[in-house]
Write a protein that binds this DNA or RNA. Structure first.
Ligand SMILES: [Zn+2]
Ligand SMILES: [Zn+2]
Ligand SMILES: [Zn+2]
Ligand SMILES: [Zn+2]
Lengths: 140, 140
DNA sequence: TCTGTATTGAGAGCCATTGTCAAAACGGCG
DNA sequence: CGCCGTTTTGACAATGGCTCTCAATACAGA
């Protein structure tokens, strides 16, 4: 979902940022800042909640993680495989996600914006559902 | 963005609901519950904030208003012209919106969900930008 | 008008997220 | 390796949107 590859502002390497990075690398699903913080805590790696928020925020700005809003409006994060712009098919209950690209949709959004004279365009497109695994659990 | 036209649960007609309804009818842009509440207040029509939230919530559930999340995650509402499922081209600064339908996108999301075995699907697709009017104001 | 039920609203409460700011950690440089 | 200016951290307070509570009030049908 990143828009451009800006010159990532230089930053210091700290134990905390490394810890957040590690969790993101291990986690395939979209998770919230709170969840990430909880994982770090349970793991003994003391990292302040504010720091987790700040780190994720920065990473998101740099396009190093994808962000989207869960049902309740809570922001959830994920380190995606592909670097280029894409969208997601996300499980509402576990956060498992599939990355999907839709060239046609991209073209379409652009043409719509042009048609109505809107500039400085961006768009959000996410598909929510219940993944096969979660579907199996709820109705065995 | 409504999914289905369910048998709208019967409700009493109250002064407050009528007031909210009126504002929605007069307002073309997406507005937040807080903004709507402020309008009512400035207009002398005393309606509690909780009531505004409840009313909008119900209307959204019944598909009588469209909801989407603004940049900060705040929910914004709008009474749309078309009843059927559609999406929006929304101005980030004033909330002005254009309703757009994309049959192709609908088909595409469905096929993607099927492809990966996700069920109970729903999707969000909104285009954000600066409308012609706002663009003109910022760079005259 | 009378009555049973739906609705209201002021305020407390909830929860994600951000602001504060002194203390601690980095990293480059002698 | 120790010094030092700068960045980062984190405990805690503060926001802000939204929901909950529950006694008082307004509907609507009889
Ligand atoms: Zn992604
Ligand atoms: Zn896209
Ligand atoms: Zn609409
Ligand atoms: Zn659609």
């Amino acid at each position: 979902m990143s828009v451009s590859g800006q010159p990532v502002k230089e930053q210091r390497r700290t134990r905390q940022r490394a810890a957040v990075d590690e969790v993101l690398d291990e986690t395939a699903d979209f998770i919230s800042a709170q969840e990430l913080h909880a994982i770090l805590r349970s793991r003994g790696a003391g990292v302040g909640l504010a720091t987790v928020y700040r780190t994720l925020q920065t990473m998101a700005d740099d396009g190093r993680v994808d962000v989207l809003r869960a049902d309740g409006g809570e922001a959830v994060y994920r380190r995606c495989l592909r670097e280029e712009h894409h969208h997601h098919l996300v499980c509402r209950s576990c956060g498992a996600a599939v990355e999907i690209a839709g060239p046609t949709v991209e073209r379409w959004t652009k043409s719509m914006a042009d048609k109505y004279g809107y500039v400085d365009i961006s768009h959000t497109l996410e598909i929510f559902g219940t993944c096969p695994r979660c579907a199996a659990q709820s109705s065995p």
